[in-house]
């Protein structure tokens, strides 16, 4: 499982990095979404992978840390997901404003480099 998990992170990161380096704002926003998946999975993976060990204490069993998955990365990722949504929204609006002001959707609002598409 670990290898699949790691490869998944790799593919998400690669796609995200590629998109982030593109010149169109929409590409960048998509790239950031993919990157945030990768980063969330990476942080989550810091608690190692465990099946069937949700950190919800069973009152009948003892509160033994070895029985449960690491809750700290989960708490961090939960926060990251919500903040990620907020920043995506903010970025989208900045994108729209820049589109309205500059008349194009280049990341630098640059009409001249429109021709030199890449």
């Amino acid at each position: 499982m670990e290898i699949v998990y790691a490869l998944a992170i790799g593919v998400l990161t690669g796609s995200g990095v590629w998109l982030v380096l593109r010149p169109r704002t929409f590409q960048v926003i998509m790239g950031l979404s993919l990157l945030s998946y990768a980063v969330n999975l990476f942080i989550f993976g810091m608690g190692r992978l465990a099946v069937g060990g949700a950190p919800i204490i069973d009152a009948l069993k003892q509160a033994d840390p070895s029985l449960y998955d690491d809750p700290v990365p989960q708490a961090l990722v939960l926060t990251a997901i919500v903040i990620g949504f907020a920043t995506t929204a903010l970025f989208l609006v900045v994108l729209l404003a820049s589109r309205g002001l500059t008349g194009n959707d280049h990341v630098d609002g640059d009409r001249d480099s429109d021709e030199a598409e890449s």
């Binding site: 790691a6 790799g10 593919v11």
Partner: peptide
């Protein structure tokens, strides 16, 4: 390279 790097690191 970045994707490969992060995959390796995660693994």
């Amino acid at each position: 390279v970045a994707g490969g790097g992060l995959a390796t690191l995660s693994y």
